[in-house]
Amino acid sequence: MRICLLTADPGHPLLAGAAALLSPRHRVESLDPHRDDVPAAELLGPGPLADVYLLKARTPRALALARHLEERGAPVVNSAAATAFCQDRTDMAELAHRSGLPFAATRTAATVAGLPALDHPSVIKSRHSRRGDLVTRVDDAAGLRALAEAWPDEPVVAQPYLAGTGWDQKLWVVAGQVFCARRRSELSEPAGAPDDGGTFGPRELPADRAELARRVGEVFGLDVYGVDLLDGPAEPVIVDINAFPGIRGQAGAPEALAALALRVAREGVEARQAGGLRLPAPRDARRDTAGR
């Protein structure tokens, strides 16, 4: 099989680990979609397409390249539509709520100044997720005014700040296999918080949390993704969902990704051999659930 990584960083531990497992028997290559001087379609060059593409990048150029590949019948993990959907925090929250997922209450404003006066501490985020976006805690009207001056034109979402342990529960899923860890929250460091997140691996993960993580993939049409949960008395509350995040230090994650890549590639080859038909686009964020 021929597997292509769509990324500017093929040395990322998850990707490099999966590539090392695949390369003895399969051809693994990478393609950086961020060359501004070359149209997305021309990055592919002549010759046949790869059997599967792993979409690790989430920039507009990366998404454009992924869409082009899907139009030509190539399988892409995750799909361009599902990846793009998870970059809009308003759409994400609306779909999660309609689907019965315990997502944090979220309201949207065209700018920070357009948010109503705060009556409780809130977490303010850029509506559109990207590198270097806005994610901060605001406690009062003065803080909100200062944020409006610093980010005058930024579309934003606001979520109520929920007190926790000072840690976040990070759940990562690769083809239904759940990995997890606690990570120090950047927004909450209460006095007396423990110095580490304690043991929190797959063995310690409650079954309902694992099921919740898998349900997110079903709703949003994702095969490789992350779910951030509040760690504290209000849990479970989902505060973010990420398509193809960096999954570091998780035993078994490269193996799960390598197996997923081979499965999707083989399914594509079998579909083409069965009738020479174009492959259907990989599963997207569920349009029926979203009412789109």
Rank of each mutant, 00 (worst) to 15 (best):
N78P: 09
A191K: 09
A150Q: 13
L95G: 03
L55D: 01
M92Y: 00
Q159R: 06
L187I: 05
F85T: 03
D195W: 08
P160H: 10
G166S: 06
D88A: 04
E189A: 11
A93I: 05
G164S: 10
L101M: 15
P116D: 12
V157E: 03
R137Q: 14
A109I: 00
L65F: 02
P194N: 09
G197L: 01
A62F: 04
L69A: 09
I124M: 10
L147V: 12
D91G: 13
P152R: 05
A146S: 14
F179W: 05
P194A: 12
A80V: 02
A66S: 07
C86W: 01
E94V: 14
V157S: 00
L162M: 10
A82K: 09
G164Y: 01
T111H: 01
P60T: 12
T90H: 11
Q177L: 13
R131W: 10
D51M: 08
A105K: 15
A191E: 15
R127C: 05
A104I: 14
T111E: 01
L101W: 12
A105M: 15
R130L: 06
R61T: 09
A104V: 15
T83L: 04
A81K: 07
C180F: 02
G100V: 15
S185H: 08
L147H: 05
T59S: 15
S185L: 04
C180W: 00
H120W: 11
G192L: 02
N78W: 07
L54E: 01
A158Y: 05
W172I: 06
G176E: 08
A105V: 14
P160G: 02
A193T: 07
T108F: 14
T108P: 00
A66L: 06
V173M: 07
R58S: 12
P194V: 07
D91T: 08
L63S: 03
A62T: 03
L69Y: 00
R127E: 06
D119A: 15
E149Q: 13
L115S: 02
A150S: 14
P121S: 09
T136E: 13
G100R: 13
H68I: 06
P194L: 09
I124Y: 05
A80Q: 01
P116R: 07
V52E: 03
V138K: 08
T108S: 15
G164P: 05
E94W: 11
L69I: 07
V173F: 08
W167K: 04
D119F: 07
K170M: 10
V156M: 05
C86D: 00
P121V: 05
A82C: 06
A96F: 10
S79M: 09
L55P: 04
W151H: 11
A110H: 08
E70H: 11
A105P: 09
A181G: 00
A82G: 11
L171K: 02
L55I: 04
R184P: 02
L115K: 01
A141H: 11
